[in-house]
Design a protein around this nucleic acid. Structure first.
Lengths: 252, 252
DNA sequence: CGTTTGCTTGACAGCATTCAACGTTGGTGG
DNA sequence: CCACCAACGTTGAATGCTGTCAAGCAAACG
């Protein structure tokens, strides 16, 4: 949209014009992001790794399935969803990413992105050219190890989602989802009992293998039972233990 | 069992006694396994990476969730399933692995295995000490890149399973499962139209988020419709295109 | 202030699960 | 060799959870 406009006034504003030169060494997300285990002097060297930052407006795609894979992206601010498209138009939300989390790992396997990454609110990411990442991983064992851990963590996370999708009932799925959110928000210094959902019911439902009406109904049921308060996207967790018990509970 | 016996006759046969010293350079799975993209001389160096082979009898676990993570395992012969355990005893099969595929990637994230790997038939794996793998990956960009692709491929595979578990109906799930099997068997030089399932109905069901009765029913329905012949675990695909159409078909 | 988008709630239908019985296979021992 | 048992697979009938369809409401946006 903005590029349409710029071309109409006679010259093209390069994409990077809206982006920023930055440094890991001075980033407040260091403890959550790639450099988490790296020593001080090594992190300085990382500054050569993250070339620039990139803004993504709410609703825009950071990348789309089929596009060539060049870089990983670390979420700096904002919130993303990733989704894969089924052959018939169905799509499945495969994850939600917040500050400090990495996007684009799916692209490595075939040098082509396998999913879409869409910003759910105005966001900013650090662009990590993958070739350079691998070069530096060869030089810094700490970076190499951390990167492998991040990929493995993603595999383990998806294992957990498979468990959820494979056998849990609607209430258990939503409880697990909310507990996962609270945990990640807490790790980032936000309140884990009171927060605003960045995604709509339909996106939650897609992620959890439910229809949006079911998500809405379960929210209402949780509220009736006093487990939480819900008003549109505003959530207040009232009984975290009860949610935890739901996740642990046997199916029948 | 054999170690019980050996201790009863007065001395302990070390675990590695049943294992074998081996070389990637002379392995017939080179085109399917880790060294797939590596040049001839580099593969020779890989021989230092794969220390030994290990036999796993049908029903035995190669590793279990909670055990310390030390090595990756490349399936040489046989067939495995991986499963995660839900907190209440439910478990979810997260994958089936055949020759050339890697086991243990889940363990990297926390230095602890996150799932069980169980042999579905007498099997043999190559043991790849992970520390050494990382060392060599720093030395050989080709190995590094291939390893990253393998991890990414696992993430993409799980994305696909999420799509399947999240929105597909029983018939579509089983069709997708069978097509995936035929593809992998074909890549290994086996018939893709006639094969024997290595897993039971319950394990297929767990992987697909279905009960074993449903799996059985859908097999029967496919047979009635002339898509395949099924007799216990023996499968003969009669109409692969129809199965493909099922997977592509819209839900309604 | 009206329109659009997202959320909630109700009634009904459908697909998969549950429960149960029966059939088949393979191994063991009489 | 056959009987028996245990494990696995098949099939039927009934229940139930979630999906579907539809209407109404609330919030966001221009």
């Amino acid at each position: 949209m903005s590029s349409d406009h710029s071309s109409s006034i006679g010259y093209q504003i390069p994409v990077v014009a809206a982006d920023f030169k930055v440094a890991c060494s001075s980033c407040n997300l260091r403890e959550l992001c790639l450099p988490v285990t790296m020593s001080e002097p090594d992190v300085d060297r990382l500054d050569a790794l993250v070339a620039l930052r990139k803004n993504v407006k709410r609703g825009q795609a950071l990348f789309r399935a089929g596009e060539p894979f060049m870089a990983l992206y670390a979420v700096r601010t904002g919130f993303f969803k990733t989704r894969v498209a089924g052959s018939d138009g169905r799509d499945q939300v495969t994850g939600f990413q917040m500050a400090g989390e990495l996007l684009g790992l799916d692209g490595i396997s075939s040098d082509t992105h396998a999913c879409d990454a869409v910003a759910l609110e105005d966001s900013q990411v650090c662009v990590i050219p993958f070739d350079r990442m691998e070069e530096m991983a060869r030089e810094f064992p700490g970076l190499q190890r951390e990167f492998h851990k991040i990929m493995s963590r993603e595999i383990v996370r998806e294992n957990g989602v498979m468990l959820l999708l494979g056998g849990m009932r609607a209430e258990e799925r939503l409880a697990a989802f909310l507990l996962n959110l609270t945990k990640r928000l807490h790790a980032r210094g936000f309140s884990s009992s009171s927060f605003v959902l960045r995604m709509k019911r339909e996106e939650i439902g897609s992620y959890l293998g439910l229809k949006l009406e079911t998500v809405s109904r379960v929210f209402s049921r949780f509220q009736d039972e006093g487990l939480l308060e819900v008003q549109q996207r505003e959530i207040k967790i009232l009984d975290q233990d009860a949610l935890q018990r739901l996740v642990n509970a046997a199916p029948c």
